[in-house]
Computed example of a mutant assay.
Amino acid sequence: MFGVRKRAMTRLVSAAVFGVGLMVSAPAAMAQDVLVMAAASTKNAVEKLAVQFKAKTGATVTSSFAASSALAKQIENGAPADLFISADLDWMDYLQKKDLIKVDSRVNLLGNDLVAIGPKGSTLKPKLTQGGDLAALAGDGRIATGDPSNVPVGKYAKAALEKLGQWEAVEPKLARADSVRAALALVSRGEAPLGIVYATDAAVDPGVTVVGIFPQDSYPAIVYPAALVATSKNSQAAAFLDYVKSPDGMAVWKEFGFAPAPKLP
């Protein structure tokens, strides 16, 4: 009798492990969150998209936000991730060259603009033109933006300032933040009189004022590509990527100030 019970228990355990027989709920119990690594500037939009996606599918999206450079390096070093959303093409290209993304899933998702900001109520009006006065307006203060050596917003800022003939004057006054949101915070807290961030970041922080808009021809087109990570085996990850680029998803991006990705040559 003991042997019969033991064999029956063995069959139940096997059913539980392999998800067969009456244990049909086992796969659901083993379902994994969709792990998203996304550029810091996408935080508000991605969090809303995640809530909507869960309401539609029941799948949970867990997100990590930082500079695209930091996230790409984390993926390279084996950090678990299903989806990567970068604030520039360079860091997506970096992972693609290392075979760390699923190339057939890659898509240019969003566009953005580059703006100069000051603390709320700032009356500074920098001339974002050839030979302008951004550095002079900062006085003894700093101009906050991402580190131009690796953070996308800093790279765009450097390109714009070089094109406008202002880089040499601005460079010594830069506060080189590790992400666009860190640069935004420096200005919002009044620790820097000026900053250079994306238009979407300025829009979500009531502690800053846009004091100037960089000419679009002064910097490379801002493109946010997205792609599934090569090691991902999560079936819901592709569904979430499909959702963020769907009409419903694009409506959320638009709500937070993003534009569709610009067409590239």
Rank of each mutant, 00 (worst) to 15 (best):
M1F: 12
R5E: 12
M9C: 12
V13Y: 08
V13C: 08
A15T: 00
V20H: 14
G21F: 07
L22K: 15
M23Q: 13
M23L: 13
V24C: 05
S25P: 00
A31W: 02
M37E: 01
A38T: 02
V46K: 03
A50H: 05
V51T: 15
Q52H: 11
Q52D: 15
K56S: 14
T62L: 12
S63D: 02
S64P: 02
A67W: 00
S69H: 06
A70K: 11
A70Y: 08
A70C: 03
L71H: 04
K73D: 13
I75M: 11
G78N: 09
A79S: 14
A81I: 02
L89Y: 00
D90S: 14
M92H: 01
M92E: 10
M92R: 02
D93T: 14
D93A: 14
Q96A: 15
V103M: 10
L110V: 11
N112A: 13
V115P: 04
I117T: 09
S122T: 05
S122Q: 06
L128Y: 06
Q130E: 14
G131H: 10
A136Y: 08
R142I: 04
A144D: 05
D147L: 00
S149W: 03
K158E: 13
L161I: 06
K163P: 03
L164V: 08
L164W: 08
Q166W: 02
W167R: 09
A169C: 04
V170A: 01
V170W: 01
A175Y: 14
A175H: 12
A183T: 03
A185Y: 10
A185H: 11
A185P: 00
L186R: 12
R189P: 00
G190K: 03
L194Q: 04
I196K: 01
Y198W: 11
A199S: 15
A203G: 00
A203K: 13
D205W: 05
G207R: 06
G207K: 04
V211N: 02
G212D: 04
I213C: 01
P220I: 02
A230S: 13
S232G: 05
N234G: 10
Q236C: 00
A239K: 15
F240A: 07
F240C: 06
F240E: 02
L241S: 02
V244I: 15
D248T: 09
M250N: 13
A251C: 09
K254A: 14
A259K: 15
P260C: 10
K263T: 15
P265D: 12
